[in-house]
């Protein structure tokens, strides 16, 4: 296959060329982070500059967007780049080498995965808690007033699948309340549950208190009135491979500090 030898070599050359070019752009984007703070100390906020990449659980979308803006205002020269997704997706991405500086998870399980991969600097800190609430359409067509109502025949209930944190919490709450819910759908994430309730497809959905809060008037919340309701802890930590650890530490301190806690409380999160 002589005629193919040269094209293949050309193809490989193109591939390599693309890789090198890719590295080039990455480097060009980051000198502010490494070179911009030669004498940075954790306390001196004036020298904290560069772009900080924060991977945060999807349920933190509203609060962390707000916190990032506030943090940037407090540290001119610092920029926070946010990536929101399910905690397990983010954990998988970080383990696969995604360039995160800070990881904020919606549960301890996924944080532990990253800790076990030796990718967390120091110890994760719990910065918020969350619990489930029943979301119903504003008109509450099935007249849901208590957790036990979810088990009524004919009521269309949507929950998270047991494999994701909100589903695990829902199962735990069912077990401790002695209620068996037969859902019409077990969604892959909490946003999908909320979406089904907002669309009026479901009579009720088990979501987080903060989701009901964030949906404004599109859904109504009915408290999960059971003893020993599941409480989810949200841990945050710096990623050990980060080149901007002072900035990461400053951001974590900001989230766990008074200003950050106030924003989280406003969104319905519980204190750690």
């Amino acid at each position: 296959m002589k005629p193919f030898a040269r094209p293949v070599a050309l193809a490989i050359a193109l591939l390599l060329g693309g890789t090198v070019a890719g590295c080039g752009t990455n480097d060009a984007g980051s000198p502010a982070g490494s070179g911009g703070s030669p004498a940075s100390t954790a306390g001196a906020s004036a020298t904290l500059s560069g772009t900080l990449t924060v991977f945060a659980a999807a349920s933190l979308t509203g609060t962390f967007t707000q916190l990032a803006t506030d943090f940037e205002a407090a540290h001119p020269g610092a920029k926070v780049s946010l990536s929101f997704d399910g905690s397990s997706t983010l954990a998988t991405q970080i383990i696969a080498g995604a360039p995160a500086d800070v990881f904020a998870s919606a549960d301890t399980k996924n944080m532990t995965k990253v800790v076990n991969a030796n990718l967390i600097a120091g110890k994760p800190v719990t910065f918020a808690t969350n619990r489930l609430e029943i979301a119903v359409p504003p008109a509450n067509p099935a007249n849901i007033t208590s957790f036990a109502d979810l088990a009524r025949p004919g009521v269309k209930v949507v929950v998270c699948a047991a494999q994701v944190p909100c589903g695990a919490a829902a199962r735990a709450d069912e077990a401790s309340a002695g209620v068996t819910v037969k859902p019409v759908s077990e969604e892959l994430n909490v946003t999908s549950v909320l979406g089904k309730v907002i669309a009026g497809e479901a009579d009720a959905g088990l979501v987080y208190v903060t989701d009901v809060h964030g949906a404004g008037g599109k859904v109504k919340g009915v408290p999960v009135n059971i003893p020993r309701a599941t409480v989810n802890s949200y841990p945050i930590a710096g990623v050990s491979s980060s080149k901007r650890s002072p900035l990461a530490a400053a951001f974590i301190a900001f989230v766990t500090g008074a200003q950050g806690q106030a924003v989280l409380k406003d969104a319905g999160f519980g204190a750690p």
């Binding site: 397990s88 494999q163 019409v184 999908s192």
Partner: peptide, 21 residues
């Protein structure tokens, strides 16, 4: 359609879910 085993949870949805655990 949502996601319920045997009713609406097709293979791609099952893959996405299994990826979690």
């Amino acid at each position: 359609a949502g996601s319920l085993e045997g009713v609406t949870r097709t293979l791609p949805l099952e893959i996405y879910l299994q990826r979690e655990i």
